[in-house]
Computed example of a mutant assay.
Amino acid sequence: MEHSNFLDLFPKLYHLTFAANLPGIRAHGLHSAASLADLHAFDDTEREATLIQRRRCIQNLHGISLRDQHAASEKKMKSCLVGITIPEWLTLLNSKIFLFVEKEKALRLAEVYAEYPNVLLEVDTAQLLATHAAHATLCRIASGSFTNPRPRGRNSFIPLNDYVYRKKRDTPAELTVDAPIPNILEIATVTSVAA
């Protein structure tokens, strides 16, 4: 998919996070869980619990709130992972920053966490890709959700230039970035998401 076509279709991208994470984002930019573990020098036990094992509840470490992975039960993951183990899959997911291409999906996720204050980052796609296109991939499915356990593996994350989009049904579920985005608040607007 040509970058220009992607920009025409998806001029904005959406990242939902807990409001408690906003001070850290202001200070350090937007990071994956793995990058945050490096930034805050997680010890081996913390790394194991946050990056390799399924997070069964929201984890609060070093001033960071990481979402649980309750939708990714081991049974469901075993049923659909292709060419990758569960720890490898979780490690892969935790190396990525996830952005929705449709605002409605971000707001649906906010409903799941309605008891917590959330903020939505509405990101300018052109500005993001100007600096992070080399680290961007598209995924046809919500890779961390196993409500509908469709097959998935390393090849689920497709470089932007290789992604085939012919019609609306080819709309990706998410764009991921495999590197920190230090200037995220310069290229995004932040809004509170009401419970």
Rank of each mutant, 00 (worst) to 15 (best):
Q69K: 11
A72H: 11
L175F: 13
K75A: 14
L30P: 10
A33N: 11
Q69C: 13
P180N: 11
R140G: 15
V119C: 06
R154H: 10
P117R: 01
V101A: 03
D170P: 10
S156W: 03
K167F: 11
L160W: 04
L160Y: 04
M77H: 02
L92Q: 12
E115L: 06
A110R: 03
N183L: 11
Y165N: 06
R150M: 14
E174H: 06
P87Q: 01
M1C: 13
L121C: 13
L66R: 03
E46F: 05
K12L: 13
L9T: 12
V164E: 12
E122N: 08
L160C: 11
H62V: 09
T91F: 02
E48S: 09
S73P: 12
D68K: 00
Q59K: 08
D170C: 04
T17Q: 01
R154Q: 01
Y116W: 14
M77K: 03
P117A: 02
P23S: 00
T176D: 01
A136M: 05
E186Y: 05
E88F: 02
H70P: 09
L109K: 02
K105Q: 10
F6D: 12
F10T: 00
L160H: 10
H135Q: 09
R67H: 09
K105M: 08
L66D: 06
A106L: 07
R67L: 11
N21Q: 04
D44W: 11
Q59Y: 06
T171H: 07
K12V: 01
D162G: 06
L61K: 13
H40K: 14
E102P: 10
F6K: 08
P87F: 01
L81I: 03
E48K: 15
A136F: 15
C139D: 08
T137D: 07
T50I: 04
S73Q: 05
M77E: 11
L16F: 00
L138V: 01
R166C: 08
C80M: 14
S145R: 13
I52P: 14
F6V: 14
T176K: 00
I64L: 09
H62L: 13
N161D: 13
L99P: 12
L90K: 00
I187Y: 00
I97D: 03
E104T: 09
G144Q: 12
Y113K: 01
